[in-house]
Design a protein around this nucleic acid. Structure first.
Lengths: 252, 252
DNA sequence: CGCTGAATTGACTACCCTCAACATGAGTGG
DNA sequence: CCACTCATGTTGAGGGTAGTCAATTCAGCG
């Protein structure tokens, strides 16, 4: 327990997640990531199977659809998008994954990834070989449960997206996405009001089933209403309640 | 093992899945349901934890959102829909579940169901207490994997729905739903061409993000094009390829 | 400096929603 | 047996939201 006042702390020891010496025990994200509420010993065992490689640059693939499934991946820093390719050859963004979140569980069903995952910015990733995770889950009941819960959470979140796409107006879709990112930021003790969007307008539109023109128009409209401030990828939510009202349908 | 050649077999012993003596070993669905590819002994152990209760009547709830999570459920006969209630109070159908499929995994994330599940017609259900399933999964590695895969499949299927809602026209949405039901029927060795829709137009529209008027119009339009025949809930697909083309975008 | 890709803004269009009338069938009670 | 209601589904007319097409701006970069 000597992590209090160590003699020399370089900035990257605190902030740069690319450091190979990072492990689950000292990771800032261990309260929201896979290790959540595991015992210390079990965290070490989990840490033992995790592989950390050099960071992904923007645009690089973490894996591709139809690659054989080996691992799930925890985002340590940066951000990625998951995209699936339709029969028609069109890309569909199926989700964005931020630090502390786990991606790759789509591959388990048929031992083949159904999505490709692409870095939206320079991103450090923890690779978790799934066969090892399975073995460990047999030995650590609470880990098994964590994995179940992780997948269940993915299911419920996707159901929320389905609801959004099925019922929500363009404004509601954008508002929901902003609130989602805001909430996920505050989980990491970042500002819920101000943040940088890691993804392009194209990605947002693709994910939400809107054209980029519509995305752009909605952003300016929300800004003119005084609900948010937009400057490129910088977002500042100035009226959180108004934004929430939009997601619930303006006539609520 | 005296379940071979019993002296009297009434019709419902063969067809009526409500019979309490049904078990996983003799269930017609055991090649597509949870027991898939388990060893015989393990199937018996799985069967040992499954509870079968009297069938649900149309409109009855299997469970309700915010009920505490105890079990997942395999549909043995009939059909159910899962619906979530938005903040606004509106229902959103998040999925339909047919025989051999498992519902309830949304509840695991927070130990509370996020959806309500309602019978679309008289349905027999196998209840699988999740704590028992967890224990058993620790002992039977292939079962653990099955449960992981089951949840993964739910994830990938929902991603397909997201793609559909994000990109698909009203026609494409209806076509995809019909093809999905067709494929799931043929997995159960039922006709892929002719079947009964278990759900109402309202449910279809709700699920697909369309009004019931649009659903109705699309059905008649597809019928006039000679692609399907519709009579109430009876569907006959007469041109499977044309239907597939619609899902891929008509300009493919 | 011009090039490229991303984003913004405008004008027009189309698809689907809204509102409304009508049809059909099941269940109920006279 | 028929009239009644109610739920469900079909069809039509008109309007609104978001898509399409196009021009412009801007930042990054060789």
């Amino acid at each position: 327990m000597n992590n209090m006042s160590p003699p020399f702390i370089r900035i990257q020891d605190q902030h740069c997640a690319h450091d190979k010496r990072v492990n689950c025990s000292n990771c800032r994200l261990n309260t929201i990531c896979l290790p959540i509420s595991l015992h210390i010993d079990d965290i070490d065992r989990l840490n033992g199977i995790i592989q950390r490689s050099k960071p992904l640059q923007k645009g690089e693939y973490l894996y591709r659809a139809s690659d054989s499934f080996d691992s799930v991946f925890a985002i340590r820093s940066g951000a990625v998008k998951a995209v699936s390719i339709s029969d028609k050859g069109e890309e569909q963004v199926t989700g964005f994954y931020l630090p502390g979140e786990v991606v790759g569980m789509d591959g388990l069903a048929d031992d083949t990834y159904t999505n490709s995952v692409i870095a939206l910015e320079t991103s450090s990733i923890c690779e978790i070989p799934f066969s090892r995770l399975e073995e460990l889950s047999l030995q650590i009941p609470s880990l098994q449960r964590h994995v179940f819960q992780l997948m269940s959470r993915e299911i419920t979140q996707e159901q929320q997206v389905i609801t959004l796409l099925s019922k929500g107006s363009a404004e509601a879709r954008i508002a929901s996405l902003l609130l989602s990112i805001s909430a996920r930021n505050s989980r990491r003790n970042l500002s819920a009001q101000e943040f940088l969007l890691p993804m392009s307008r194209t990605d947002i539109g693709n994910f939400l089933g809107l054209t980029i023109e519509t995305v752009s128009r909605i952003f300016t409209r929300l800004q003119k209403s005084g609900i948010i401030k937009v400057d490129k990828k910088e977002i500042a939510i100035t009226d959180m309640d108004a934004l929430r009202n939009i997601t619930n349908g303006s006539d609520a």
